[in-house]
Design a binder for these strands. Structure first.
Ligand SMILES: [Zn+2]
Ligand SMILES: [Zn+2]
Ligand SMILES: [Zn+2]
Ligand SMILES: [Zn+2]
Lengths: 158, 158
DNA sequence: ATATGAAGTGTTACACAATAACATTGATTA
DNA sequence: TAATCAATGTTATTGTGTAACACTTCATAT
C-alpha cells in the first residue's frame, strides 16, 4: 500500500493530521517525553498543510484559534521540543517548520520544496547519504548531520 | 597539480585571496557586470578565511578597516550581487557567506562545514545531483536549485 | 561637451526571526 | 506536604534582512 503524495490535492489531509498526532503520542510515550497540550497544538498547526510554516505564523494561528495566545519564546520552545523529538523538521533556507511523517525512524532528511506552491516532500535517501559520506571522506571530513533542501517544481505546478 | 585544501593550515592563504579577486575580475569583465570597489572589498572580506562570515561581521570589518563605514542595505546589496554572480555562496543554516573557488564554472554546491572550527569546503558533485534528480523524478518533482550543507569534523579537528 | 537615464550607493526607518533573563505555574517525587 | 524539576508566561533585547527615498556615479546618445 503506497501512501498518497502531499502534492495529490485530493488526498484526505485530515488523515495526515490524525496520523501525525497519533504517531507523536506513540513516540513521546515510548521515550518518556511529554507531549503537552501546547506542544500538541503547535504540532497540529505545523501539520495544517504540507507547506513549511514560520514560527510567527504558528503564533498568529494560536492567537486566532481557540488556544491561548502565546509569545515568541513559548512558540519557539514548543517548536524546539518538536524538532528535538524528530516530530518536526526545520528548513533553514526559509526559516520554517514542517511535520515529519516518519518520526519513529532515524533518518537523514532531504526536502523537495516547490518554488511555486511551497508544498514540500520529505525523502529518506540512505544511498545519497552514503555517497556524500564517501565524497567527504576523500577530504578527510566526517559527516554527522546533513541538511539537504532542493527547490523546484512539484507535479501539480510544472 | 592538486590544490591545497583549506583545512591545510599551512597553505598560503594570501594566494587564495589573490586568485579569488583575479577570478572575480575575469568573470565580471566577461559578463559585463561591474565589480565596483565596494563589491571587491566585500568579496575580499568574505575571503578573509575559509569560514563563512555573516553580513554584520562584514559590516563591522568595513568599519574597522580603511574602507568607508556602511549600513546594512549597502552590505546586503554587495553580498547579493556577489551571490548572483556566483562569486559567493550563502549558507542558509548559518546565515553566512563564503567565497566560491570555481565561480566561472556552473555547478551545484555541496558544503562541508566543520562544527568545531567552521572551516568550510565546497564540493562540486555532479553524480549526487544526478542521483537526487532521479529520486525527485519519482515524485514527479523537477529540481532546479539545490542547497546541500553537511556538518561534521574536518581533518584538523577530528 | 552636455543631457539623459540607468546603475550603484547613502540614509533612515522598519519588519521579521530568535533568544536572554526572570517570574510563575504545574507535575513528580521524597 | 514539602521540595524539586519541568514547562510556560512575561518583558526586553539582540540578530537578520528589507522598504523607501535621496543622492551620486557611470554609460550612452545627442
Ligand atoms: Zn496531507
Ligand atoms: Zn523526517
Ligand atoms: Zn586559503
Ligand atoms: Zn561554488
Amino acid at each position: 500500500m503506497t501512501k498518497a503524495h502531499p502534492t495529490d490535492t485530493s488526498h484526505d489531509h485530515n488523515l495526515c493530521i490524525k496520523e501525525a498526532l497519533e504517531n507523536a503520542q506513540k513516540v513521546c510515550t515510548a521515550r518518556g517525553s511529554r507531549l503537552t497540550a501546547l506542544r500538541e497544538r503547535v504540532l497540529e498547526l505545523v501539520w495544517q498543510s504540507h507547506r513549511p510554516i514560520g514560527a510567527y505564523e504558528v503564533m498568529a494561528n494560536l492567537k486566532q484559534g481557540n488556544s491561548k495566545p502565546a509569545q515568541p519564546p513559548t512558540v519557539y520552545r514548543a517548536l524546539s521540543f518538536l524538532v528535538e523529538q524528530g516530530l518536526v523538521h526545520k528548513l533553514s533556507s526559509s526559516n520554517a517548520y514542517i511535520g515529519c511523517h516518519i518520526p519513529d525512524k532515524a533518518h537523514d532528511s532531504c526536502f523537495l520544496v516547490c518554488s511555486n506552491c511551497q508544498t514540500t516532500i520529505e525523502l529518506d535517501i540512505p544511498d545519497i547519504k552514503q555517497s556524500l559520506a564517501a565524497h567527504a571522506e576523500q577530504c578527510h571530513f566526517s559527516i554527522n548531520y546533513s541538511n539537504i533542501e532542493l527547490s523546484g517544481l512539484c507535479a501539480e505546478c510544472r
